[in-house]
């Protein structure tokens, strides 16, 4: 049990520290370690857990918690959560402290001005990459396009859009 907990901690701490640009990039690595190396779960179970973690609200990397839960119960879930989010959060906190202390430095204003167009580009990129990565039927593209325009130019609540999107596909029979 202790060995499993240590393995979980090591795996997720390591993966979270290489997950530059977001947590979803390391999901194949989680699968390899959990299914092939440690045999905590089967490939089918992993896919199901992936679907569950996407269905649930919150960060996508929560799948780590489910893997930990299967491998070692609640203790495993807790260890996985801490390992997945702890070290990176401490790193961001350190960076943010540094950033705050530089509030009145002239260079920070320049960096802020420089990061703005990059950040806007990444916002588009995250949407475009997701659209590219998922199997998309014409209807899904239409939903994405309509949502993009409605969200950009009106103040309709996004939860309503989510409900309409889900209902549209359900009514269309998948």
């Amino acid at each position: 049990m202790i060995v499993t907990l240590l393995q979980l901690f090591w795996l997720f701490a390591l993966l979270s520290m290489v997950a530059i640009g977001g947590g979803t990039g390391v999901i194949p690595d989680i699968q390899r370690a959990a299914v092939d190396t440690h045999h905590w779960l089967t490939a089918k179970e992993f896919l199901d857990l992936f679907a569950i973690s996407r269905a649930a609200p919150g960060p996508g990397s929560m799948i780590a918690v489910l893997v930990g839960q299967k491998a070692a119960g609640l203790g495993g879930a807790a260890v996985s959560f801490v390992a997945m989010f702890g070290p990176s959060s401490v790193a961001v906190w350190g960076l943010a402290q540094f950033w705050n202390r530089a509030a009145r430095k002239p260079w920070r204003a320049v960096v802020e001005r420089a990061l703005a167009p990059v950040g806007i580009g990444m916002t588009f990129a995250s949407g475009l990459a997701l659209a590219r990565g998922t199997e998309h039927a014409m209807l899904s593209y239409a939903i994405t396009a309509a949502t993009t325009l409605i969200f950009a130019f009106t103040s309709i609540h996004p939860v309503l859009l989510l409900a309409i999107g889900a209902a549209t596909l359900l009514l269309a029979g998948g």
């Binding site: 996407r54 475009l128 997701l130 994405t144 325009l149 969200f151 309409i164 999107g165 209902a167």
Partner: peptide, 18 residues
């Protein structure tokens, strides 16, 4: 199925934010 509908909306939310 409901999930892929929400996924399509979520992509649109990101693009709309952009």
């Amino acid at each position: 199925v409901a999930l892929s509908g929400m996924g399509a909306v979520a992509i649109g939310l990101n693009l709309g934010t952009g």
